[in-house]
Amino acid sequence: MSKLFEPIKIGSISISSRIAMAPLTRNRSPGAIPNMLNVEYYRQRASAGLIITEATAISHQGQGYAHVPGLYSTDAIKGWKEVTDAVHKAGGKIVTQLWHVGRISHTSLQPDGGKPVAPSPIAAKSKTYIINPDGTGTFIDTSEPRALELSEIPSLIEDYWKAARAAMDAGFDGVEIHAANGYLLEQFLRPNSNQRTDSYGGSIENRIRLTLEVVEAVVQEIGGERTGIRLSPVTPANDVEVVDPQPLYTALIERLAAFDLAYIHVIEGATGGPRDNAPFDWESWKAAYRAKGGKAAWMVNNGYDRDMAIDAVESGRADIVAFGKPFISNPDLVRRLRDNAELNPLEQATLYGGGAEGYTTYSALD
């Protein structure tokens, strides 16, 4: 049997296989509060070596899509506790992804109808998801953001460590800091979305500053052994340009080596798209991290199938492989991959919003 199906310890988290369930936004938590439908969804997928929850807002300001969960209210923490209890009872391990969308939001989703925040007041050519008056969901253009004031940065960082503490209170095994896919932290990293002239803009050192400060705050609060981070060096998702990413992300990964993280979660290529959309030397990037003493487990993601995943782990190129959409339609994906069984097809029409259909109704093998 391939190493893909063998257990591994990442930080303080012992997982049953090297197969992770990637974060998957499903828009089924009205009021930003996890509910019993969410409990069943995650319980069904507890056989994953590690579940990484859907992206979860660290604050109301960090919210960017309707009916996605948060970690900033007592009711949300209680709701997540129901989820983690169910997953643990079923023998699984689960971490939550800490999310601030930055400019990928809409005024109707923001506190008091205010503008979304971003490194700079530059609107993204992107869409977000809202609920219409008739209850149906629709994708609309994001709203124009305002630039974060320098004086607001400390409270933003505080929101991250508070959310990490809330995750521990909710029973999670750890957290993943979302610094990918064109959301707030990556907006600070990329030059087309970050036109600041203060200590958070301009040079590579300045643009990686916020991500490193967030990681430091979270690690100080809950420990590096319970903390992962997601990065997407060449994704164009949510209108972030890919401009000379190698030196930027090498500088970032070398600095991350100091934090003793549980894992680094890497999106290879364009998120949900081609793996070769832009040149990037993945091997030298990982080597730069290891050369600085970085020991975190290396998790890869984007378009992996069974053979690719087995090869990645057997070759030592990766320690863990994260699967996204296959876990939606195959709650027992680990077993199906192990047995090389046929996979259920995905129902595209039920991906976002709605109820149980296309969420908890996919069958498992007998």
Rank of each mutant, 00 (worst) to 15 (best):
E6I: 11
E6F: 14
S16A: 15
A20Q: 03
R26Q: 06
I33K: 02
M36C: 08
Y41E: 12
Y42M: 08
A46R: 00
A48K: 00
I52Q: 06
G70S: 08
Y72I: 06
D75S: 09
K81A: 12
G102P: 04
R103F: 07
H106D: 07
D112F: 13
G114K: 13
V117L: 12
A118P: 05
P133Q: 11
D134Y: 08
G135L: 04
G137M: 07
E144D: 10
L148D: 01
E149C: 10
L150R: 06
E158R: 11
Y160P: 02
K162Y: 08
A163C: 09
D173P: 02
D173A: 00
A180C: 03
G182A: 04
I204T: 08
E205T: 11
E213Q: 15
Q220P: 12
Q220N: 15
S232A: 15
V234D: 06
T235S: 14
T235A: 08
D244G: 14
A251K: 07
L252G: 03
R255S: 13
A258M: 08
A262W: 01
E268V: 15
A270C: 05
V300G: 14
N301E: 10
R306E: 09
A309H: 00
D311F: 05
V313C: 11
E314L: 10
A318C: 09
K325E: 14
V334P: 04
A349L: 07
T350N: 11
L351R: 03
T361H: 07
Y362T: 00
A364F: 10
